[in-house]
Simulated assay, not measured.
Amino acid sequence: MAEEARFVLGLAYQAGPDPRIAKGADGGRDFFSPEELEKACWSFLPGGGEIGLFHADGTVGHMTVTENGIYRGPDWPQPDGTVIKAGDWLIGGICDETAWQLVKSGRVTGFSPQGVARRIRPRSET
């Protein structure tokens, strides 16, 4: 039997706010404009490109990022009901055995890109 590739491709961050989310898994309610999200995506791999699990400290290193980019459309419905839209950030990579087993069991359903950002309050459009 051939060894599993352990590759996953998924949504790292959607552009703009999601009205379905009041508070994120990490306790915050942050979002990026499409322009700022693209800047974050483009700086991710040159900045080290690390992925963590469950927004928890000490979980980096379970996936090697091999792909990273902004999706350009059209809308791409996913089996879980998520719709990936133009401007959303996608990440793909090869999982180690620990992460792969978590993905296969359904316990890991998203990415936790590691990095820093400056939080600002959204400005209203006038």
Rank of each mutant, 00 (worst) to 15 (best):
Arg107Asn: 09
Phe54Lys: 00
Ala25Thr: 15
Leu45His: 09
Thr64His: 11
Glu97Trp: 11
Ala5Arg: 12
Val65Met: 03
Trp76Asp: 09
Gly49Thr: 07
Gly61Asn: 01
Ala56Gly: 06
Asp57Met: 10
Val65Tyr: 03
Gly73Thr: 03
Val103Ser: 02
Gly69Asp: 00
Ser105Gln: 08
Val108Pro: 10
Arg20Ala: 15
Arg107Glu: 14
Val108Thr: 06
Pro19Asn: 00
Glu35His: 10
Gly16Ala: 01
Asp30Cys: 15
Cys41Met: 01
Lys104Glu: 15
Ala2Gly: 13
Pro34Ala: 11
Pro77Trp: 10
Gly73Ala: 00
Ile51Ser: 04
Asp26Val: 14
Gln78Asn: 07
Asn68Cys: 15
Pro17Cys: 02
Ala99Leu: 06
Gly115Leu: 00
Met1Ala: 06
Gly58Arg: 07
Ser33Asn: 04
Thr59Gln: 04
Leu9Pro: 01
Glu67Asn: 10
Phe7Glu: 13
Trp76Asn: 12
Lys104Gln: 12
Leu53Trp: 10
Leu102Trp: 14
Ile21Asn: 11
Pro113Ala: 13
Glu35Asn: 07
Lys85Tyr: 01
Lys85Thr: 08
Val65Arg: 00
Thr98Asn: 12
Val65Asn: 00
Ala12Met: 05
Val116Met: 15
Ala25Pro: 08
Pro46Ile: 13
Ala22Arg: 10
Lys104Val: 03
Ala40Phe: 08
Glu3Asn: 11
Asp96Trp: 04
Gly27Val: 03
Gly52Ser: 15
Gln101Asn: 10
Lys85Ile: 02
Ser105Glu: 12
Val108Asn: 11
Trp100Pro: 00
Gly52Pro: 09
Gly28Asn: 15
Ile70Asp: 04
Ala5Leu: 13
Phe111Cys: 05
Gly27Trp: 04
Asp18Lys: 02
Trp76Arg: 10
Pro122Leu: 01
Thr64Ile: 08
Gln14Phe: 04
Val8Lys: 03
Ala40Gly: 01
Pro46Arg: 01
Glu35Trp: 09
Phe31Arg: 09
Glu67Gln: 13
Arg123Tyr: 04
Ala2Arg: 08
Lys104Leu: 12
Arg118Phe: 06
His55Phe: 14
Ile84Cys: 04
Lys85Gly: 07
